[in-house]
Every structure is written in C-alpha cells, then in structure tokens.
Write a protein that binds this DNA or RNA. Structure first.
Length: 265
DNA sequence: GGAGATGTTTCAAG
DNA sequence: GCTTGAAACATCTC
C-alpha cells in the first residue's frame, strides 16, 4: 500500500508516543518481518528507552530512542502503524507492539512483506546508505540524467520503481508521473528526448510534493484531476482527454496509461 | 474459487 | 554485464 507520502503518514501516527518511555515490547518473533532482526536484542534493549524522534526517507522509516537505539520500519505492501490503548490486546497481524504508559504503538502487516530493523547503538548502515531524496535540493535534473545514463536500455516504468533512483516512488506514483509527463511507460530511457527527461524530473518533484502536502498530514484526498482516482479499475477514462485508460503489465507491474496522450513505446 | 494487490529480493534465462 | 520475467514471501479483497 504505502509509497512516499503514505509512509510519512504512518510515521506520524506514532507521534503521540514521542517523549514517552517504552515500558515493554511484544513481538510475534517468528514472523517474517523480523527476518533481518535479532528480536532478542529488541526485546532486551528497547524497554526503558524513550522514543525521541522519527524520520522517513522514501519508503524507509526510523525511530530513535534515548538509549541510542534505532528501530527501522519498512511497511512492504500491507504494513501500517497506529496507536491503540495501553492495554491493547494484539491481533494476529499486530507483529510488534511497543507499550507506553498511556498507549500502545502498533505495527501491523498481514502480508508480511514489511521489515523491522533494530540496532542497539551507532548509526546503522541501512540508514546512512540512502539515495538522494526526491524532494531534496540535490535531486536536480542533472543528478537524475546522470543516474539514468547507466540505465538507458531499461524501460522507464521499471526505472521509476527503482528505489535507489526514485526513493519512495511506487506503482501509483510512477504511473501518475508518466501520465503527467506524457511519456509511455514502456519507453526505453535511451529513447527519451532531453525535454522528456526534464519533464519526468519535474513531474516527479510535483507529484511527490503534492502527495506529501495532501496525504502525509491526514490522508487527505488528491484532486479529482489526478490519474490516481481513475487508474485502479477497468473502464476508467483519462481525466485530461476522456479516452479509455489502458491497463497492462509493464516491468512486471500493473500499469495504467492514457493512449494518445502518452504516445507509444 | 480464482485472480490480483500501492513491495522487494532472488534466481534463471535471454 | 545488463535486463527481464517469474517466483517467493502470506493474506486479504473483489
């Protein structure tokens, strides 16, 4: 489910817990979300530490604690974060619950594609080794074009889903960007004109910025004119041209585009 | 019951 | 070496 702005929305949901100590931790320790984690360390070291800060970077989140610990959360396809009462009885998919005196911070993930990371002290490699964020000043058109030269034979839709190049972009954002840039999703990167590359860069920034403004604070509704509202089911019409939208698998993912507007591959 | 799903990783094949 | 495609992960919804 979650892409850039949805991830940040879920990060903020644990905000009520900032400044309060963790009193206990409950984990479904055999679940796949802990495949890269020593659950024993997490259970041993987190209690007693105060939740200090949280940040998101693309689809990755990190929560930092007073004792120097780092908790990483990736939501995968179906992960979510929420707050429940202090006495919350974890449901079958609530794989990690951080208990505070006034509430429980809950991580849920039915499909288990998500991932929990934990490091007791010191900046973890998974948090330092991160690509340039889309909304940072360093994500310039030149930066993007430079990164794309190594991928000139790849299909643009696949490249937009590459988290090293477009951190936070997922399936709906990729389709939204290409629809706005008027580029067919199956185009090879090397076939794109400089102005098309620039348009993809510009629309990437636009979609990311607007999504962060609308979705991250309270899961608000994007404007009706966005492809987002029309791409999910068969029979949708392009909000700009009125033509029937096409849905097809490209780069292994369901892809929606507006024929005519987005040319051909 | 079957298909498909807003993700990532891995492996085989071209 | 690069790219693609499929499979795997596990569950829910349409």
């Amino acid at each position: 489910m979650p892409e850039l702005a949805e991830v940040d929305f879920f990060r903020r949901r644990w905000n009520p817990g900032l400044g309060d100590p963790i009193e206990a931790v409950a984990a479904h320790r055999t679940k796949r979300v802990f495949r890269d984690t020593r659950v024993r360390d997490l259970l041993r070291w987190l209690p007693g530490q105060t939740l200090r800060t949280s940040e998101s970077h693309g689809k990755q989140m990190v929560f930092r604690f007073s004792g120097g610990s780092w908790l990483g959360v990736h939501l995968g396809m179906t992960g979510s974060l929420r707050v429940e009462s202090a006495s919350w009885n974890p449901q079958p998919h609530d794989h990690l619950v951080l208990r505070q005196s006034a509430r429980s911070l809950v991580f849920r993930d039915p499909r288990l594609f998500g991932r929990i990371l934990f490091q007791r002290a010191g900046v973890p490699g998974w948090w330092t080794d991160l690509p340039v964020e889309i909304l940072s000043a360093d994500f310039t058109a030149d930066h993007l074009c430079g990164a794309l030269t190594a991928r000139r034979n790849a299909v643009i839709k696949a490249v937009l889903l590459d988290q090293r190049l477009f951190p936070g972009v997922g399936n709906w954002m990729a389709d939204e960007i290409l629809w706005r840039a008027e580029v067919h999703p199956a185009r090879r990167v090397g076939s794109l004109a400089p102005q098309e590359l620039r348009s993809i860069w510009k629309q990437t920034r636009f979609v990311a910025r607007r999504a962060m403004e609308v979705i991250a604070p309270d899961w608000g509704d994007l404007p009706r004119g966005w492809l987002f509202h029309h791409r999910w089911s068969d029979g949708g019409a392009c909000p700009r041209t009125g033509a029937a939208l096409v849905r097809e698998t490209i780069a292994g993912r369901t892809t929606c585009w507006s024929p005519g507007r987005q040319g051909s591959s």
